[in-house]
């Protein structure tokens, strides 16, 4: 499965005045891959992710997402990606169904598509009885799972997940990762950031950013071997402790 490149990043750089937030990062992400994007606070993760989502213009370097150029084709990029973050995902004062209709509508899907897909997700998440309840009234774990379903509602090529499992109980966290596995098995590429180091192990490949640069990029097993660490946690600490700068 890992042959077709879906994200290519070549010396991508972002400077804010004298501060280089992202410093010439280079990597590729393959179709259907679960790609872990790690880094300490302030390492430049968020800035890099914003550039790939077409939200922020790079200072220099090249990058394509789903075959589209981040400089000129950010509208096409936005159509082909999904995005979910811990902070903002669903409208709490809309019902489950209304949220799905809204996102389907935003991505210009037909009414029939929205109807079928809504029914499918409600079935899959066992949320049929909650379809007309306000999202705000659901437990956190359900919200996060629902938010992920909504992020891939329009069947994007890639989904960007920004710390999707923060504060969620361990059982729901596993269920969430099962959904990620399934989405990946269906060919959706997963680009995920997390503070849980055991989750880094679930990724096919992991990159670790330090001070705006990608310091390490490999499978979790290879990284552990390379840094002679028993766990990813240890790998991360060894790398992130080298950081000289701090600040978000």
């Amino acid at each position: 499965m890992l042959n077709e490149k879906i994200i290519t990043v070549d010396h991508l750089t972002k400077r804010f005045a004298a501060f280089t937030a992202v410093d010439a990062i280079t990597f590729d992400v393959y179709k259907g891959e679960i790609f872990g994007f790690l880094g300490a606070n302030g390492a430049g993760k968020t800035t890099a992710m914003r550039m790939l989502c077409g939200l922020s213009m790079p200072t220099s370097g090249k990058a394509t997402v789903a075959g589209f150029d981040v400089y000129t084709q950010n509208e096409q990029i936005k159509k082909n990606i999904g995005y979910m973050s811990q902070k903002f995902s669903l409208y709490e004062d809309l019902t489950v169904k209304e949220n799905m209709q809204l996102y389907g509508g935003i991505y210009g899907k037909s009414n029939q598509f929205i109807k079928d897909k809504t029914a499918f997700i409600l079935e899959q998440l066992h949320l049929k009885d909650e379809a007309n309840k306000l999202v705000g009234s659901l437990p956190l774990g359900w919200k996060q799972k629902l938010a992920f379903s909504v992020a891939i509602f329009h069947e994007p090529e890639i989904v960007f997940l920004d710390e999707p499992t923060g504060g969620v109980d361990p059982v729901t966290r596993r269920e969430f990762w099962m959904m990620i596995y399934e989405a990946a098995a269906n060919g959706i590429t997963i680009f995920v950031t997390t503070h849980y180091m055991d989750e880094a192990e679930y990724c096919n490949r992991v990159s670790i950013m330090v001070d705006g640069k990608v310091e390490a990029l490999d499978t979790p097993a290879m990284l552990k071997q390379q840094y002679q660490s028993p766990t990813m946690d240890d790998v991360f600490l060894k790398l992130a402790r080298k950081a000289t700068r701090s600040g978000d």
Binding site: N41, G167, H195, A240, R241
Partner: peptide, 10 residues
């Protein structure tokens, strides 16, 4: 330590 990276947590 919520929302804080692994190094700072440590």
């Amino acid at each position: 330590t919520t929302g804080v990276d692994a190094v700072s947590r440590k």
